[in-house]
Amino acid sequence: MENPIRWTTVWVVASWYGSNIGILLLNKYLLTGFGFKYPVFLTLCHMVACASLSYVAIGLARVVPLQAIKSRSQLGRLAALSVVFCYSVVCGNVSLRYIPVSFNQAIGATTPFFTAVFAYLMIQKREAWATYAALVPVVVGVVIASGAEPSFHLLGFIMCVVATAARAFKSVLQSILLSSDQGENLNSMNLLLYMAPIAVAFLVPATMLMEKDALEFTIDIAKKDLKIVWYLLFNSSLAYFVNLTNFLVTQHTSALTLQVLGNAKGAVAVVVSILIFKNPISFIGMLGYAITIFGVVLYGEVKKRYS
């Protein structure tokens, strides 16, 4: 009876890696190599797919039980999370237009630093001094990597930092808004089911205002080459499967295993992106990224010891 469970876990983890790394690389290709310069519209496509596939998975296939929204205040909290979520994804996509995936992942690895900062500022959550000390190499590594990055771009760097901070802010905000004692907690799949349509409602006017020629451009390209349609459909579907596989990995592994896998995933994404896009790298830059990863691992170990 052990083998089916073991192989299911392997398949789930492999799918999680594939969807996470796949969407990152495909986003980069669309926004640079393919010339699709519409990160807000791309995010809108992602959210439309997440809304549609969430309904299929929960409303029709019953992958997980449907959890109802129980109050107007809960809906308001979901709307707030959706705005922050959209902002983080859009900024992340904008950053990929200007900086390589490897540098993007190095900056993204600083999420624990921003999470600790927001947790302190928003809920006065204090960690042990050793926990904060473990965050020093996380930041130092990115500083080193930034200074030695051959493809450094200021706007791309800023957008990536903002996206990383927004993801951390969302995680803290989510713990505050949805960890109530009123039975209003939602699992991640139901959370996406409700957040995605709200995100679409925000992104439609944002796209019309900021990228009003995006749809016309896509239609014109599609008339000449249908590949853009298939790229967008596959890319948008991957956006949903990132969330689905993350939920499944959480179910099939422990929190510690998930943390270790997450750290390794960033390193794998860096190696794969360098092999595919062949962006220039430097020894100092890779050393900086290695220091950041070391800091993230150290932070996890120290936090586990003092929690």
Rank of each mutant, 00 (worst) to 15 (best):
W7C: 04
A68S: 10
W129I: 10
G18S: 14
T115F: 00
F157H: 13
G156I: 04
T111G: 00
A14C: 13
S180G: 15
K70Y: 04
V13M: 04
M208E: 08
G59Q: 00
F85C: 11
K224F: 07
V10S: 09
A206Q: 04
V142Q: 02
L261V: 13
K37Y: 09
I5L: 14
A119H: 05
G108P: 06
A199P: 08
Y299N: 11
A134K: 05
R6H: 06
K170E: 11
R72T: 13
S236R: 11
V302M: 04
I21K: 12
Q74C: 01
C50D: 11
S52L: 15
F118W: 05
A269C: 11
S273V: 06
S52D: 05
V229C: 14
A166Q: 10
Y231L: 14
F114K: 07
L26N: 09
E127W: 03
M195Y: 02
K265F: 03
D225H: 13
G92R: 08
Y17S: 08
L298V: 00
A199W: 06
L193V: 01
V12C: 05
R167L: 12
H46Y: 14
I123S: 13
C86G: 03
A222D: 09
F217K: 10
I23S: 12
K212M: 09
V138W: 00
K170N: 06
L233K: 10
Y289A: 04
N185H: 12
L154D: 04
T250Q: 14
E127V: 01
T207M: 13
P100H: 02
M122V: 11
L191F: 02
A163Q: 11
S71L: 00
E2K: 12
L173E: 09
P150M: 01
F41N: 11
